[in-house]
């Protein structure tokens, strides 16, 4: 269906039927999407290691969350459910395709000032991190992102990955150590305030 052929009446009808199917109105979705789309895309891109795949999975994740029919107690609950669906999608995709075509995610030009010494240093750090992340498994990347970037609790991450809480602590600890080992002593030294 091309946009050019869609009349205003179609659009109205489509919007109404979508609200009925998704049990959410467009404004509510818009607010939720604005808050979550960027971190979700980054999570998908980092864990799948494929920026193009992340575009497809972003659409699929929102669709599944909206069609799930789940009643969410809060926005946080909805957000965690979103990441849970995303984690499952990445895992299923990896199982189906089996490859890890890790592609670099472009750095924002506005934030990378290559001319300055600090900017060059940051760009180099980012490149090192990209390389180190490619050495980790999709699950390790997912665990690190959920724990340290999304701020999910142990219980939430354990539920997302279908592991016990005790096992999760071990997995998370290993993933953290592995990343720091791959990055070398400079990365570990960052932690010293």
């Amino acid at each position: 269906m091309s946009d050019a052929r869609v009349t205003a009446l179609d659009r109205l009808d489509l919007g109404a039927s979508a609200e009925q199917a998704f049990q959410m109105d467009e404004d509510g979705f818009g607010a939720f999407y604005e808050r979550t789309s960027r971190p979700l895309w980054l999570y998908l891109a980092r864990t799948s290691g494929d920026a193009r795949l992340a575009d497809d999975l972003l659409h699929e994740t929102y669709y599944r969350v909206l069609r799930s029919g789940t009643v969410f107690e809060s926005d946080d609950h909805r957000r965690h459910y979103l990441f849970r669906v995303a984690a499952n999608l990445v895992r299923d995709t990896k199982r189906r395709h089996g490859t890890e075509p890790v592609t670099a995610i472009a750095a924002d030009d506005a934030l990378v000032d290559g001319a300055s010494e600090r900017g060059a240093e940051r760009a180099a750090d980012r490149l090192d991190l990209q390389r180190a992340l490619t050495q980790l498994s999709a699950r390790e990347r997912s665990l690190l992102w959920l724990a340290y970037v999304q701020g999910c609790s142990h219980e939430e991450i354990a539920a997302t990955h279908g592991v016990k809480r005790a096992s999760l602590k071990t997995l998370l600890h290993r993933a953290k150590r592995r990343l720091l080992d791959l990055l070398g002593p400079d990365a570990r030294a960052r932690g010293g305030a």
Partner: peptide, 23 residues
């Protein structure tokens, strides 16, 4: 280690170029 990992990942995310469709 938690501080180091969080800083590294957050910094990488802040600097990443993200183009998602509008809401």
């Amino acid at each position: 280690e938690a501080v180091a990992v969080a800083e590294l990942l957050l910094e990488a995310d802040r600097g990443a170029e993200v183009h998602v469709p509008s809401a």
